[in-house]
């Protein structure tokens, strides 16, 4: 599959809107950090070695089968890289410094491997809903297959060795993206975050750090990577996630029974604006899409479906809009194109 085919398609496997607890959990991501023995970590790689490593990993990816392709970011347009970031397939850091870096993708985009990011390999699997077991199995299978071709740096005591000691051991980070409008609206979210952090769980807004979450979307993930096994880390995160999901459902139930008119009004107004706006900022779009999503999940609205809402999270972002227009857009053009995408999709 060509990279252009990946990029022009808004849909990615994680957006399917299926899977367990999909009324609250948008998606699950599992990643394994791996490094090759005998090479410095990417930040300290000489150019010729970085090139050699990229070649070696690209060749090894063939073992994963025909639905996988490797793209060299040095040959990819910056706007295209930005779309990869917006589709959650690579990190912003990976898109910034592109030379000697690569991305391997499978055709459904459920699997991706960043090559020469902070670690030599970051093997990732994205699943819709709460799909930790599936994602971990997928990432482990890919890791195992690659391990037959590549010599991963492993220490008897410390496990898999990573550039930053915060990833050492399993190299495993499990993250789930949650939509928590009711916990936010009822002011309970901060209390939940404090509890989660005490459990060693990191909490982030979807976009950016140290800021309020855009669109009531949050990511929670394990911090500790060394000590417990992969299965234990995964099970711990699933357990915590289920508790948050229950709290969110409870808060939604309360909102609907106690303030039905207010919520129905809020949701209906959001839908009306999205359905009819001709100029809309990213911020307003995110906020209103969250209200509409709450409406759909609470049975106050019967459309748009989850998959459409998930796609809108991506197609309303600047990179995607610019790429589709085929040129960098001015502010007003962008607002107009965004509004148009939304109008077509919420109808």
């Amino acid at each position: 599959m060509t990279l252009a085919e990946h990029l022009s398609r808004p849909f990615s496997h994680w957006m399917a809107g299926e899977g367990a607890d999909a009324d609250v959990v948008v998606s699950t991501r599992v990643r394994l950090a791996r490094n090759l023995r005998g090479y410095p970590f990417p930040e300290y790689l000489r150019e010729d070695m970085a090139q050699r490593l990229l070649d070696q990993v690209s060749a090894a990816v063939e073992v994963l089968g025909a639905e996988w392709d490797v793209y060299r970011l040095g040959e990819v347009d910056p706007v295209d890289c930005r779309v990869l970031v917006e589709k959650h397939l690579i990190s912003p850091q990976h898109a910034q410094e592109r030379r000697f870096r690569g991305i391997a993708l499978n055709s459904s985009e459920s699997g991706s491997i960043m090559i020469n990011e902070e670690d030599h390999l970051r093997i990732q699997v994205l699943e819709p809903g709460l799909g930790v077991d599936t994602a971990l199995a997928g990432a482990s299978a890919a890791e195992g297959a690659l391990g037959g071709r590549l010599d991963f740096a492993f220490d008897e005591e410390k496990g898999y060795l990573s550039a930053c000691p915060t990833n050492v051991g399993t190299g495993l980070r499990v993250s789930v993206m949650l939509h928590l409008p009711a916990l936010t609206l009822t002011g309970q979210a901060p209390r939940v975050w404090v509890a989660l952090r005490k459990l060693g769980i990191a909490v982030r807004g979807l976009y950016g750090e140290g800021t309020d979450a855009a669109g009531d979307l949050f990511q929670i993930s394990n911090q500790i990577t060394l000590g417990p096994s992969e299965a234990e880390i995964a099970a711990g995160l699933v357990q915590v996630t289920r508790q948050v999901v229950e709290q969110e459902r409870h808060a939604r139930g309360l909102l609907i029974t106690e303030s039905r008119q207010e919520i129905a009004d809020r949701v209906g107004r959001a839908y009306g604006v999205l359905r009819h706006a001709h100029l809309i900022s990213a911020e307003e779009a995110m906020r209103l899409l969250s209200d509409v999503r709450l409406g759909v999940e609470s049975g106050l609205l019967d459309r748009p479906e989850r998959q459409k809402l998930n796609e809108l999270l991506v197609v309303t972002l600047p990179g995607y809009l610019d790429r589709n227009a085929g040129r960098p857009l001015g502010r007003k053009e962008r607002w107009a194109l965004r509004a148009q995408w939304i109008r077509e999709r919420v109808a």
């Binding site: 917006e86 915060t166 990833n167 990191a202 990511q219």
Partner: peptide, 22 residues
């Protein structure tokens, strides 16, 4: 400000939230 950052696309999905530990 947040509004402008979001408009410019400087709000990114954080792929690695291990920052606090780092």
């Amino acid at each position: 400000c947040e509004a402008c950052a979001r408009e410019r696309g400087d709000f990114f999905f954080v792929l690695d939230p291990g920052m606090a530990l780092q």
